[in-house]
């Protein structure tokens, strides 16, 4: 794991930044969110992929690419979560002010 992180750190930072940006936008985004059903299916898919990676059932390069995808995706999600949380902090600090005045 640490080898994968150190070998691909540039790409992972990129994924993290992408996630930060996306998370930042998501808080104030007015667009359509994914439905609950789709979200569940996506989660199941993610769990299945993680399970496949841990079980090392996919051989050779495809296996490596799956590992790479999963850690990039994990970094993206972490970035999103942090981004959203930060934006939320910013929004909630500025929004109540007009109500108070």
């Amino acid at each position: 794991m640490s080898y994968l992180l150190s070998f691909h750190w540039g790409w992972l930072v990129g994924a993290l930044l992408l996630g930060l940006a996306m998370g930042w936008i998501a808080v104030v985004h007015r667009g359509r969110a994914t439905s609950k059903v789709v979200a569940i299916w996506l989660s199941v898919l993610a769990v299945a992929l993680v399970a496949a990676a841990l079980a090392r059932v996919i051989p050779g390069r495809a296996g490596y690419w799956l590992d790479l995808w999963l850690i990039m995706f994990a970094c993206y999600l972490a970035g999103c979560a942090v981004g959203s949380w930060l934006r939320d902090r910013v929004v909630s600090r500025t929004a109540p002010a007009p109500e108070a005045s």
């Binding site: 994924a15 992408l18 996630g19 940006a21 996306m22 998370g23 936008i25 998501a26 808080v27 985004h29 667009g31 969110a33 994914t34 979200a39 990039m72 995706f73 993206y76 999600l77 999103c80 979560a81 959203s84 939320d88």
Partner: peptide
């Protein structure tokens, strides 16, 4: 928020 993170998947 997570429901709105999906567009970033495409560039990812």
């Amino acid at each position: 928020w997570a429901g709105k993170w999906w567009p970033g998947i495409v560039p990812l």
